[in-house]
C-alpha cells in the first residue's frame, strides 16, 4: 500500500469516527449548546469526507454554508434565548425515548439493507477534481437552472419574512383577528426588563 493510499485510509477512518460519534453526541447530549457546537464539528468532518472524494469546491461550500451560516445561526438563536432554568419533566419520557430509539434503529437497519443490496459500480467514475468548480457552474446555469432560481425565490421570501418579523413594532393590529396588539420591544432604554403588562 502506497503512502498516499494509507494516509487516505487513516483520514477516512478518523473522519468517519468523528461523524458517527459527533452526530450521536448531537442527539444524546443534554446540554443544547454542546449539541450545537458538536454539530459544527460534524459538518466539518463531512467537509473533510468531501475533500477525500476530491471534491474541494463542495467541501469549501459545505464549510461556508453549513458551518459558517447554518451553525452560527443555530448558535445565535441558542445564545440569545439561553435561560439557565430547569425544564419541566416531560410526561412519559422513558416511553418517548424508547419509541424514538426504536424508529431510529429501524431506519438504520433499512439503510444497511439498502447499502448491502445496491449493486455499487466500483470503482465509480474518475473524479474531475479541480475542474469540478467549472462543471458545477455549467450545471447550475443549464439543466439545473429552474431549481436554482426556485431556491433564490425561496431565499427572497425568507428574507422578506425575516424583515417583517424584525420590524413588527410597526404592525399594531393582529393580521388574523384584527385586535390591537402591544408588540413594542421590551428592551427600551429606561424601562425595566420584564414589566408586568397585565396590570397596566
Amino acid at each position: 500500500m502506497s503512502i498516499s493510499n494509507s494516509t487516505e485510509l487513516i483520514c477516512f477512518l478518523v473522519l468517519a469516527f468523528v461523524v458517527i460519534l459527533g452526530s450521536l453526541g448531537v442527539v444524546l447530549l443534554g446540554n443544547i449548546v454542546y449539541s450545537a457546537f458538536l454539530l459544527g464539528g460534524v459538518f466539518m468532518a463531512v467537509a473533510g469526507l468531501y475533500l477525500l472524494l476530491n471534491a474541494s469546491f463542495v467541501a469549501a461550500a459545505q464549510v461556508l454554508v453549513y458551518v459558517g451560516a447554518v451553525n452560527v445561526l443555530i448558535l445565535f438563536a441558542i445564545m440569545l434565548v439561553n435561560k439557565r432554568e430547569d425544564l419541566k419533566p416531560i410526561p412519559g419520557l422513558q416511553l418517548r425515548r424508547f419509541l424514538s430509539a426504536g424508529i431510529c434503529l429501524g431506519l438504520l437497519v433499512l439503510m444497511f439493507r439498502v447499502v448491502l443490496i445496491t449493486p455499487w459500480s466500483l470503482p465509480g467514475p474518475a473524479a474531475i477534481g479541480e475542474g469540478a468548480t467549472v462543471r458545477i457552474g455549467e450545471h447550475l446555469f443549464t439543466d439545473y437552472l429552474l431549481p436554482f432560481e426556485l431556491a433564490s425565490v425561496l431565499l427572497l421570501m425568507a428574507m422578506i419574512g425575516a424583515i417583517v418579523l424584525a420590524r413588527r413594532d410597526i404592525q399594531t393590529v393582529d393580521v388574523g383577528t384584527g385586535n390591537e396588539v402591544n408588540q413594542s420591544l421590551i428592551e427600551k432604554a429606561g424601562t425595566p426588563l420584564l414589566v408586568d403588562k397585565t396590570t397596566t
Binding site: F37, A60, L64, V67, G68, A69, V72, L75
Partner: peptide, 10 residues
C-alpha cells in the same frame, strides 16, 4: 480562504 474565515465566529 472565505470559507475558512467563516469558521472564526464559532
Amino acid at each position: 480562504w472565505i470559507s475558512l474565515s467563516s469558521i472564526q465566529p464559532i
